[in-house]
Design a binder for these strands. Structure first.
Length: 246
DNA sequence: CACCAGGCCGTGC
DNA sequence: GCACGGCATGGT
């Protein structure tokens, strides 16, 4: 099946990548500038191998998701191979707090301003997203000045509590959901995005405004358990699919 | 002018 | 427990 790197990188599960020219994706991660055109460029790099979840059997998952029903079959066939990225915990947490009641383009803009304003330059013109230490001492008004709006105090709280993030790795899904939601501005949707796209907890099923439409129209009366054991990947297919029709 | 975007918080019942 | 209004910002 055709790898859909563009949808994986630009489709809303992360906000780090820019398509600098057609087919060339660039991001600052792991203290370097990565420039890739395909996953072949990622295989040699240890960080990217984990980041792109290369050890997971996506062919098998896609096959089984397609067999679930006709809608999913259509979605998988149209979208191609989607991966679930394993992002840095802190970056994902801040990113998805920024995502609430927001759109992907504007989230990306905020992410870039975070990097330029609070992060550090790893190559001329290329800035890393700030670490939690770089955001210690940043106040709500500083975040508002970037355009974060009502999310500003949530970001302060997240930085305060960021030390707990690594400990979620070994928690089960429900405990990790609960722990994340002690941070202001993190509810069930944002928490499940963080757990999927940074912790690879594949039972997450984020319900944003797009998914509410999908569920109401195509899966009335059903919930995430219908998609087990591929809740997260099925959700991502339905999300990309419904957005591709808009 | 309205309404929307990978929602959540605070309040009221 | 659930329903509802409010919320910063920028785009359509």
């Amino acid at each position: 099946m055709v790898e859909n790197l563009r949808e994986t990188l630009l489709g809303g599960q992360c906000f780090s990548w820019t398509e600098e020219e057609p087919g060339l994706f660039t991001a600052v991660l792991n203290e370097k500038v990565y420039r890739i055109r395909s996953l072949e460029d990622a295989r040699a790099d240890e960080y990217l191998r984990a980041y792109f979840d290369l050890d997971y059997d996506y062919e098998k998952a896609m096959r089984e998701i397609s067999e679930k029903d006709e809608i999913l079959k259509q979605a998988v066939s149209k979208i191609g191979m989607l991966r679930m990225l394993k992002q840095d915990h802190f970056i994902a947490t801040i990113s998805f707090i920024l995502s609430q009641n927001n759109n992907i383009k504007r989230i990306k803009g905020l992410y870039d301003r975070f990097s330029r304003t609070f992060g550090h330059e790893v190559e001329p013109g290329y800035f890393s997203f700030p670490t939690k230490d770089e955001l210690k001492g940043v106040c709500a008004d500083d975040y508002r000045a970037l355009g974060c709006g009502f999310r500003a105090p949530f970001l302060v709280d997240a930085v305060d509590k960021a030390d707990m993030l690594d400990s979620l790795e070994k928690m089960d899904f429900d405990s990790a959901m609960e722990a994340l939601q002690t941070i202001k501005g993190i509810g069930p949707k944002v928490a499940s995005c963080i757990l999927i796209f940074s912790y690879q907890k594949r039972e997450g099923f984020p319900m944003d405004v797009w998914m509410k439409k999908v569920m109401a129209e195509y899966y009335p009366g059903k919930d995430s358990s219908y998609f087990a054991p591929y809740q997260a990947l099925s959700q991502q297919y339905l999300f990309s699919w419904i957005r591709s029709m808009a």
